[in-house]
Nucleic acid binder design. Sequence first.
DNA 1: TGACAACTGGAATCCTCATTCCATATATTT
DNA 2: AAATATATGGAATGAGGATTCCAGTTGTCA
Lengths: 190, 190
Amino acid sequence: MSTPNERPLRADAVRNRRRALDAATTLLAEAGTTLSVDAIAKRAGMGTGTVVRAFGGKDALIDAAVAELLEPIVKRGRELRNGDEGLESLRAFMRELMAFQAAHYAVSDQLGGLDLPATGKLRAELVEIVAGMVKRARERGEIRDDIAPAAITALLGETAFAIAKASNDTPALADAFITVLFDGLRPASG
Amino acid sequence: MSTPNERPLRADAVRNRRRALDAATTLLAEAGTTLSVDAIAKRAGMGTGTVVRAFGGKDALIDAAVAELLEPIVKRGRELRNGDEGLESLRAFMRELMAFQAAHYAVSDQLGGLDLPATGKLRAELVEIVAGMVKRARERGEIRDDIAPAAITALLGETAFAIAKASNDTPALADAFITVLFDGLRPASG
DNA sequence: TGACAACTGGAATCCTCATTCCATATATTT
DNA sequence: AAATATATGGAATGAGGATTCCAGTTGTCA
């Protein structure tokens, strides 16, 4: 599923690919780090050329690293959506999303200007998952119906991302956010 | 108050300073623009050196431009805080903050990595203003008391900034955000 | 093990920018 | 208007970083 019908990579190339990815992830996690190809190469213990070649360019490497990071939370979202328990699923997912963002808040700081297709796709799926949950919760009458679902989805999505840095200083923040948000989303609250 | 006891600038220097500032503001407002000194200089119709010299460096120029942009909203915040009508002031200020952010959403995209002391100070004052209003509203019993004021301030602040890009696509979004947020902040809502 | 294709390190290259410099031009002052 | 202090344009400089190149190395296959 990942690399279809290409000539198989040599064993050392596979190894280095993996190492480059890990090094990128590590640097991504460190706020204030210089995310240069050279820095990644040094961290991975290999030459610059090797790093670039492994993915065909810096952006592709970062894209792969971030996508790999995002994968589990997206998967988790799919699960929650499928066995959909309505509002509770949504609340649970928001909690996990925020925890995820808090844990990786340094990442998004360093992504400006990069072209990250895979990452973008996953992010879009995240939004889509939340939108689906919002729709279902609303059909069940669990959230207010005087506000457009799209607006609610946007509110949740933006808030989930916004919390990142702040909640890293104050872990309890996420709970406060969720409490206020979901209280405000209850039906007949106007 | 702005330039104390320095030797007065020559008339043309004053003019160029102004033009550089305006050019920077213009470019800042355009999403996707390259915010290089050369671009600013070209836009302002002057040489690169002139632009840099006017403020002593790129960062200082951008800082001045953004601070100038922020000034009115901060001033407005001070007014609202002084004639404090409690929760209504807070709600009004949030509305204005969000409108402001929506209008200038492109700005913050381009500020990563720059050192902007004046801008930072104004932002801090914005937070301080919101914190003050939250405190007052809480003392008046207008918002729930089961969540730390600091958390509420953070929630409002982060949300206000988060809305920027999204609400540029969908103007009604800000209202939805505020409705949900303030409903969720009502006392005895738990 | 030998032959060969696939990889590797990291120096060289190429870009994008901020900042500096200085010969030239313009304001200011007398 | 002449003298002087300031300011200007924009080429030159230099730093930071992505990408390319290739001589040398290592995995792979027979």
